[in-house]
Design a protein around this nucleic acid. Structure first.
Length: 576
DNA sequence: GCCGTTTTCGGCCCGACTGTTTTCAGTCG
């Protein structure tokens, strides 16, 4: 699929156009890029089957952009983009990813200081050169440096959501080889950590060389770091590293256990084994020279007298002790959600209609969803005011009558203002089935003020769910300073539900928060925060996060059928 | 550059904040 490649180019062209001060075109390019990224159909296939005319039928793509796409498919590049790059050969994407750097600054940085990438920018900032730019003082320079530090902290790791589809595909390829007996991802990927460094894939086969050769023939890579008899390390085209190891079937389970980690988990496991007179290695569990387990992971844990430990729990945070006492949580299974309580549509900043989102949710096995478009204060999303919300409610009534097999609840994602008040009147909130509230502005308030702000919001009898509670964006924005303990207490007291937002950049609540919340008896939901039909499958990352937080099915409200779910929401007649 | 039961031309998303200014440009959401 060339969709993402073309989308990337369009995003960059949008940035260049914005640098030039061109009006409206940047948005057109961005819209088209987003459509390409999320539409699910292969653009190359559309072009092959329906030509340029087919391209122009896609919403947001007209004659000019269709030409660009055609040019890219034929030549692998877009001349206009190359011209931009020639004039300003800078790493637009990287520079823009620094908080506080926008297109205009990228241009000025290049023209005045010849800054072409983040390293140049860091050097210039440290040397105090940024202060020579217009409207630049010590404070802005400091902010830029902080932005760079934050960006670099997350470097080398990709979000799980980004690499997931590729790894899934590569594992599928390995499994499809006739010499493969078994294949599975290992490492932090298998533990479903929110970001992943290197990806480990384990293969069971008698013919390691052939597995490696055939893998290399079918997977696009940029560079091979190393290639041995049973292992190959490479940098995939998408910019992350993959290690493929081939082992015999008899020790596949032991190897999978070993390479899944975490390191801390394995250290504890082995130490425990030594105490029992056993030895655990990647080749099996041994009693003296005799291997007593190794073909499956279940066998390995069993041989040590433990319950099987799900990969998401293997962080040495008490799971080994719990497994020995047979007291591991019965973590929420994948695929056990029945509803999704945060979905945006084309009424605000979503890409698709209410009906399209409902149909996709149904196809994904859900039986209810809440439409929660943004509200007034988020002007950029064309947020709903009371009038627009009321008209959307009527629209939902109509669609509910028209479709079957799924129920659409009326909802909203209302903004928690700086003082903790909401940007929609109580009168209209009372008419909604589900109200989510969230912070979208003033992220950097002092802890005490921020906590009181959120507390005031969740004390509203109308607020059912606190959406993405900490406001963090992985590798981009730190979580708000919040007294989580107090948030949990007030949530419990008021019956407010906390969201586990499954969007790959958010995953908010974080795993550690989830565990705390569960211990305190706070109820949670897992939502996709979908802005396009393709995003609904993000729910699996929310479930993964919940599992990492030891959450069970009973802790997650949207595992319940619709009537039980709605009945368990906040009692609106009570004030707090 | 895109789009159209308001328009094939003339609209497109805008308010708040920040850091820098002394009236506002750039960035963010």
């Amino acid at each position: 699929m060339k969709n993402t490649e073309i989308a990337d180019l369009f995003f960059r062209m949008a940035a260049y156009l914005e640098m030039e001060g061109v009006a409206f075109k940047p948005q057109a390019y961005e819209r088209a890029a987003m459509t390409l990224e999320t539409m699910g159909r292969d653009i190359e296939e559309i072009y092959r089957e329906e030509g340029k005319k087919g391209l122009m039928e896609i919403q947001g793509i007209g004659a000019s952009l269709a030409d660009h796409i055609e040019e890219f498919l034929k030549t692998g590049t877009i001349k206009e983009y190359e011209a931009f790059r020639k004039r300003m050969p800078v790493d637009v994407e990287e520079l823009l990813s620094v908080e506080g750097v926008g297109p205009k600054l990228v241009k000025e940085l290049w023209e005045k200081l010849r800054v072409a990438n983040v390293d140049d920018l860091e050097r210039a900032a440290k040397e105090g050169k940024l202060q020579k730019l217009s409207r630049f003082g010590a404070k802005r320079e400091q902010n830029i440096l902080q932005g760079i530090t934050f960006l670099k902290k997350g470097q080398g790791r990709k979000t799980l959501g980004f690499i997931y589809p590729y790894v899934e595909e590569y594992v599928r390829i390995l499994k499809s080889l006739d010499i493969t007996e078994e294949a599975a991802p290992a490492g932090s990927f298998r533990r479903m950590k929110e970001t992943v460094g290197d990806v480990d894939i384990l293969v069971a086969s008698k013919n390691a060389q052939q597995v490696i050769d055939q893998f290399l023939a079918r997977v696009p890579y940029l560079k091979i770091w190393g290639k041995g008899d049973t292992k190959v390390s490479l940098r995939a085209k998408q910019g992350f590293n993959i290690d493929v190891r081939v082992v015999p079937m008899e020790t596949f389970g032991a190897a999978l256990q070993y390479f899944t980690g975490s390191k801390e988990h394995n250290v504890r496991l082995r130490a425990y084994a030594v105490g029992k007179g056993l030895k655990v290695s990647e080749y099996g569990v041994f009693k003296g020279n005799r291997r007593i387990a190794g073909q499956t992971e279940q066998e390995v844990y069993e041989a040590l007298g433990m319950q099987y430990i799900e990969p998401e729990l293997r962080e040495d945070t008490g799971e080994i002790e719990a497994a020995l006492q047979r007291k591991l949580p019965d973590v929420i299974p994948y695929g056990s959600l029945r509803g999704d309580l945060q979905i945006q549509t084309d009424w605000t900043d979503g890409a698709h209609s209410i009906e399209d989102m409902a149909k996709e949710a149904k196809a994904q096995g859900l039986s209810y969803i809440a439409i929660t478009d943004h509200t007034r204060d988020l002007a950029m999303t064309n947020g709903c005011d009371e009038k627009k919300l009321l008209s959307q409610m009527r629209e939902i009534d109509k669609i509910n009558k028209k479709i079957s097999g799924i129920t659409i609840l009326k909802g909203a994602e209302v903004n928690i203002r700086k003082d903790g008040s909401l940007d929609i009147s109580d009168e209209v909130l009372a008419k909604l089935d589900v109200v989510g509230a969230s912070v979208h502005s003033h992220f950097r308030m002092p802890k005490k003020e921020m906590t009181e702000r959120v507390v005031r919001a969740i004390r509203s009898p109308h607020v059912d769910i606190l959406f993405h509670p900490t406001g963090r964006l992985i590798q981009k924005r730190e979580a708000c300073e919040l007294d989580m303990d107090r948030i949990f207490k007030v949530a419990k007291e008021t019956g407010t539900v906390l969201e586990i937002n499954a969007y790959p950049d958010r995953l908010d609540l974080r795993d550690a928060d989830i565990r705390q919340a569960k211990q305190q008896g706070v109820r949670m939901v897992i939502d996709s925060d979908a802005h396009a039909v393709d995003h609904i499958k993000f729910l699996r990352f929310g479930i993964a996060q919940a599992r990492r937080g030891w959450a069970e099915k009973k802790d997650i409200l949207n595992t319940k059928p619709l009537h039980e779910f709605t009945a368990s929401l906040k009692d609106k007649t009570k004030a707090f």
